[in-house]
């Protein structure tokens, strides 16, 4: 039971809340959402509170993450896309902090819940749709009609474009969710081998060295994945927002 690799994703209620027969309890997932926001916002707030002309170490990190996302968004969606900067920056910092907090043993990984990543993906796609139709009206539908396609192929291409657009929230959410879930399960399984082999005596302890090395290597890999998935989420968000800003041109 101690080796159950799924147990880490179990949600347990801390403060039970029920409104209209629906369960809105404050759970361990909620607790780590709060922790994520507190860590990310607290760091950014205190790191930049000096407003130094010459930045200190933590202010540099805050400025670097700001410029990192700003550059990404400007490259992906042009200068018109910069109005979405707070959204992309919040998404990146939230996902990154949640992923990184998840790397602590016994901590809950907020982004390993499909509903959380799906809600974030829907937020992105919803923003694209709302802004696209608000800004361009029905011209936004040009997004699905690439220019320079022969008339006979057009229905097929439009159908493919619509399907690919609809699959975006799914791929965006499943990519993040699956990466975090799979990584944490793998880590837990290999770490579990260390414990169960170690309890078998001298030979087992010798054999446990291999999964231990594997666990250490995987931990490093998982830190990379934690950053990379936050980065990928932000890059794709920028690309999708580009469709809302410039639906015609590619």
């Amino acid at each position: 039971m101690a080796n159950d690799p799924i147990h880490q994703f179990q949600i347990s209620k801390i403060v039970p809340i029920e409104i209209g027969g629906i369960d809105f309890s404050f759970t361990n997932a909620s607790l780590f959402m709060v922790a994520t926001v507190a860590c990310a916002a607290g760091f950014l707030y205190f790191a930049t509170s000096q407003r130094g002309l010459i930045p200190g170490r933590s202010q540099s990190v805050a400025e670097m993450s700001y410029e990192f996302i700003a550059g990404m968004l400007r490259e992906g969606a042009g200068s018109h896309g910069m109005k979405f900067f707070p959204l992309v920056f919040s998404l990146f910092m939230f996902v990154l902090t949640a992923n990184m907090l998840g790397m602590f043993p016994y901590f809950f990984t907020v982004t390993s819940q499909i509903i959380v990543t799906f809600a974030l993906a829907l937020l992105v796609i919803g923003t694209v749709l709302v802004y696209g139709f608000y800004k361009h009206g029905l011209h936004f539908l040009q997004l699905f009609v690439p220019s320079g396609v022969p008339g006979a192929l057009l229905p097929l291409v439009v159908a493919i474009e619509i399907i690919s657009f609809l699959s975006r929230p799914v791929s965006l959410s499943v990519r993040l969710f699956a990466n975090m879930l799979a990584g944490h399960i793998t880590l837990k399984v290999f770490a579990g081998f260390v414990a169960s082999l170690g309890s078998l005596g001298a030979l087992g302890i010798g054999g446990a060295v291999l999964p231990l090395i594997m666990t250490v290597a995987l931990t490093g890999l998982e830190f990379l994945v934690a950053f990379l998935q936050a980065y990928v989420f932000a890059v794709l968000t920028c690309m999708y927002l580009n469709d809302a800003v410039h639906p015609g041109g590619h």
Binding site: I11, D23, V37, A40, A41
Partner: peptide
């Protein structure tokens, strides 16, 4: 757990977004 997750995500991420947009 979906309703609870969504509610708390909306609350926490909404606050985070506001803080980012208004302050940071």
């Amino acid at each position: 757990h979906f309703p609870s997750q969504i509610l708390w995500l909306v609350i926490t991420f909404g606050l985070f977004y506001l803080l980012m947009k208004k302050v940071i």
